[in-house]
Computed example of a mutant assay.
Amino acid sequence: MTDTQARGVTIATIAAEAGVSVPTVSRVLNGRSDVAPHTRERVEQLLRDHGYRRRGGRTSTTARLIDLVFNDLDSPWAVEIIRGVEDAAHAEGVGTVVTAIHRRASDTRSWLDNLAGRASDGAILVTNEVDPTLAAELRRLHVPAVVIDPAGVPAMDVPTIGATNWAGGLSAAEHLIGLGHRRIGVIAGIPALLASRARLDGHRAAVEAAGLTVDPDLVLVGDFEHESGFRLGAQLLAHPEPPTAIVAANDQMALGAYEAVRQRGLRVPEDVSVVGFDDLPGARWSSPPLTTVHQPLSEMGALAARTVLRLVRGEELEVPRLELATALVVRESTAPPRGR
């Protein structure tokens, strides 16, 4: 079916093919519960087959609703993205629907069904693996998409919004090396994520540029949660030759490392310096305030919203990949190693 044909499908068309009344199709679209399950399933399948999108009288160039989809919503990181998206969308008079799919295929399918029913104009996907099936569904529904901080190379031709993770990893290591640290422990992020690999690569580049060697025993892999920062921080400090500084791939793991330092009877930064990544709001209120790499999460969300709205209006994008600058924020969790 061509795009023109898909746009020409009406509720009456769906009703006739399903053998039901127009009000019944309307009730399905509005999520009403007073529709028999087998009837709802038949109507929803026809809506998907036709790529039907209820426009609510809107023109094809004016957006009124965009979807923001996360794997999970259990971190301050997600809150900052949401803040940026909603600020930019609100400025354009556009609503935002936030969904967490928890990496489950069934949740993704449910989201796509809901997307078709409410006729969102665009979608912002955050660290999702955009597989070919999802790509095909979004194209069939005529929903332009933007990916924030992609987990890998997107499997669809969509713009991506990210940050200069490599430069951020470089600046954190250069800061510690400049203070005199030579044994630096690393609590890296999930290797499958592009951001994790870039941060670690930037760290390695700084260490090697200083004529030093990255000790593989001091590079451990975490999962961006406080608990892994605590556990791996304790493992680094138990090393026969422990590091004098620890770099974590996000603030949450850095704060977990704080607790590992404390439980060992040591202090930050007198005994161990610690650097995070993200600069979440809580970083400046930690004790001591955390030195970290500022990632412009809210700005990334706002840029993603503005970009998807440009796509909705049919505008051409100058470049498919945009990266916003990171910047090291030096606070009180870093100092020269003892004896310097």
Rank of each mutant, 00 (worst) to 15 (best):
residue 268 V to S: 09
residue 252 Q to R: 12
residue 259 E to A: 15
residue 262 R to V: 07
residue 268 V to C: 12
residue 243 P to N: 13
residue 256 G to E: 02
residue 249 A to W: 00
residue 257 A to Y: 05
residue 246 I to V: 15
residue 257 A to R: 03
residue 271 D to P: 06
residue 253 M to R: 02
residue 249 A to E: 00
residue 248 A to T: 02
residue 248 A to M: 09
residue 247 V to Q: 10
residue 249 A to R: 01
residue 261 V to M: 11
residue 269 P to V: 00
residue 257 A to Q: 07
residue 252 Q to V: 04
residue 244 T to V: 07
residue 255 L to N: 01
residue 268 V to L: 10
residue 244 T to M: 09
residue 245 A to Y: 01
residue 268 V to F: 12
residue 258 Y to M: 10
residue 261 V to R: 04
residue 267 R to P: 07
residue 260 A to L: 11
residue 266 L to G: 13
residue 254 A to Y: 00
residue 263 Q to C: 06
residue 256 G to P: 07
residue 266 L to W: 14
residue 245 A to F: 05
residue 260 A to R: 05
residue 265 G to P: 09
residue 245 A to P: 00
residue 257 A to H: 06
residue 254 A to Q: 03
residue 250 N to C: 11
residue 252 Q to T: 07
residue 245 A to C: 08
residue 256 G to F: 02
residue 245 A to Q: 04
residue 253 M to S: 03
residue 260 A to H: 10
residue 270 E to P: 03
residue 270 E to A: 14
residue 246 I to D: 03
residue 242 P to T: 00
residue 244 T to G: 15
residue 259 E to Y: 05
residue 254 A to I: 06
residue 264 R to G: 13
residue 264 R to A: 15
residue 249 A to V: 01
residue 264 R to F: 08
residue 270 E to M: 08
residue 247 V to L: 15
residue 260 A to I: 12
residue 253 M to G: 01
residue 256 G to L: 04
residue 257 A to I: 11
residue 244 T to A: 10
residue 242 P to I: 04
residue 252 Q to E: 15
residue 246 I to T: 07
residue 243 P to E: 09
residue 257 A to D: 08
residue 259 E to W: 06
residue 260 A to S: 15
residue 256 G to C: 11
residue 262 R to L: 11
residue 248 A to S: 14
residue 265 G to W: 06
residue 271 D to R: 04
residue 263 Q to E: 13
residue 251 D to H: 08
residue 250 N to Y: 06
residue 254 A to V: 10
residue 243 P to S: 10
residue 264 R to W: 04
residue 242 P to Q: 04
residue 264 R to K: 13
residue 271 D to A: 13
residue 270 E to S: 12
residue 243 P to R: 08
residue 252 Q to C: 02
residue 262 R to S: 13
residue 242 P to L: 06
residue 250 N to A: 09
residue 245 A to H: 02
residue 267 R to L: 13
residue 263 Q to L: 14
residue 267 R to S: 15
residue 250 N to P: 07
residue 269 P to W: 00
residue 251 D to V: 09
residue 271 D to N: 13
residue 267 R to F: 09
residue 269 P to D: 03
residue 253 M to P: 00
residue 253 M to A: 06
residue 252 Q to P: 00
residue 262 R to H: 14
residue 264 R to V: 06
residue 271 D to Y: 07
residue 271 D to K: 06
residue 242 P to D: 01
residue 262 R to I: 04
residue 260 A to M: 12
residue 245 A to N: 04
residue 253 M to C: 02
residue 267 R to N: 15
residue 247 V to W: 08
residue 242 P to M: 04
residue 264 R to H: 15
residue 245 A to K: 01
residue 264 R to S: 14
residue 242 P to N: 03
residue 270 E to Y: 06
residue 248 A to W: 00
residue 249 A to S: 14
residue 242 P to A: 13
residue 261 V to G: 07
residue 259 E to G: 03
residue 270 E to Q: 15
residue 246 I to N: 06
residue 259 E to I: 03
residue 247 V to K: 02
residue 260 A to C: 14
